[in-house]
């Protein structure tokens, strides 16, 4: 049995983890630019001496006048020199960490220690490594990531279709993997292609990209609906049950992988849409007003490099039962 740390310990640990004792060079550079041309305020010392010497009023007045003169001459005295906000990538490199949010559910799964892990967490770690910083991963659901009102993160890996991300608020990277949606029939079915099942009903998980395909909304441009006879369900398991009972003639998978389908003897794949591209997402502007074009460029560069040297292939095969989803 483990003992929960005390509140004091939890607060102290949190602050230690949050603290960053690496100050950007520009802060000191701008500080010294100001202080080199700024005289020290010796009015109090002068006042002290003058009390001892009996010439307080005269010297104090002189000191105050001098101080005021310095204040007026130094226009930047009361306001910090604006620090150029620049690109959030500079900040990430300065801090040595990149904050990446990942959804806790598929393609992640819960490991033995209770913490989510999976393909996106692997990619997040690898992205940090390619950029040369530590990846700080936090788990939040995809809908919250893309609400747009809060961006306390640098990069999100929502694992949703790229075309569903709002372009006014977010920029989308190159896809780093392509999720397949398979059109599946019962093993005993005589259907061999989409044309054999368009009369339906075809079961699909409600709200999934598979439903968008059936309704002609898969991808960035509208298309002709595949069928009008659609049966929506809450999960792949529900659709499998309807397929088995004969309530549906086919189904489109949402989260079942090719490896999952291969070990089933009661289903057969007869088609499906082109795999769904999934990409990293960055806010158009960071929470403190920095641009993110440099960061997006670095993410794209890292994805290209990881694809070229086989890193993405290896991560995919490791997490998806030997399947390489890094290629369309």
């Amino acid at each position: 049995m483990t003992t929960r740390p005390s509140t004091d310990e939890r607060i102290a640990r949190w602050l230690d983890a949050e603290a960053i004792e690496v100050i950007p060079d520009r802060v000191l550079e701008r500080t010294f630019e100001r202080t080199r041309s700024l005289r020290q305020d010796r009015s109090r010392l002068i006042a002290l001496r003058s009390r001892r010497g009996g010439r307080a009023l005269l010297l104090l007045a002189a000191a105050v006048a001098a101080s005021l003169g310095i204040s007026i001459a130094s226009g930047a005295l009361r306001q910090p020199t604006p620090t150029p906000r620049g690109d959030v990538l500079d900040q990430i490199v300065d801090f040595g960490r990149i904050r990446i949010v990942v959804r806790p559910d598929q393609p992640q799964f819960t490991a033995g220690n209770g913490a989510p892990t999976g393909f996106d967490t692997d990619v997040a770690t690898a992205l940090g490594s390619r950029i040369g910083v530590r990846a700080e991963i936090t788990f939040i659901d995809a809908a919250t990531m893309l609400e747009g009102s809060s961006t306390r993160w640098d990069v999100a890996l929502p694992s949703v279709p790229s075309w569903t991300v709002t372009s006014e608020q977010f920029s989308v990277s190159k896809p780093y993997y392509f999720w397949p949606h398979r059109l599946v029939v019962a093993a005993g079915s005589s259907a061999t292609s989409l044309a054999d099942v368009v009369a339906g009903p075809i079961c699909v998980v409600s709200g999934d990209a598979g439903e968008q395909w059936l309704r002609g909304a898969y991808g960035s441009t509208p298309a002709t609906p595949v069928t009008t006879s659609i049966l929506t369900a809450a999960s792949d398991e529900d659709c499998l049950a309807r397929l088995s009972s004969g309530a549906a003639v086919a189904m489109v998978t949402a989260q079942l992988s090719d490896a999952d389908l291969q070990i089933r003897s009661d289903t057969r794949v007869i088609g499906g849409p082109a795999p769904e591209p999934r990409a990293a997402v960055v806010p158009v502007l960071s929470a403190d007003g920095r641009t993110t074009t440099g960061l997006l460029s670095a993410i794209n560069g890292a994805i290209s490099a990881m694809r070229a040297d086989g890193t993405l292939t290896g991560l995919s095969q490791n997490r998806f039962g030997g399947t390489d989803l890094s290629q369309p």
């Binding site: 806790p104 819960t110 220690n113 209770g114 913490a115 788990f139 659901d141 919250t144 809060s150």
Partner: peptide, 11 residues
């Protein structure tokens, strides 16, 4: 950030 983590990890 309101982060209703769907799988809280108390450990």
């Amino acid at each position: 950030v309101t982060t209703p983590t769907t799988m809280p990890d108390p450990s």
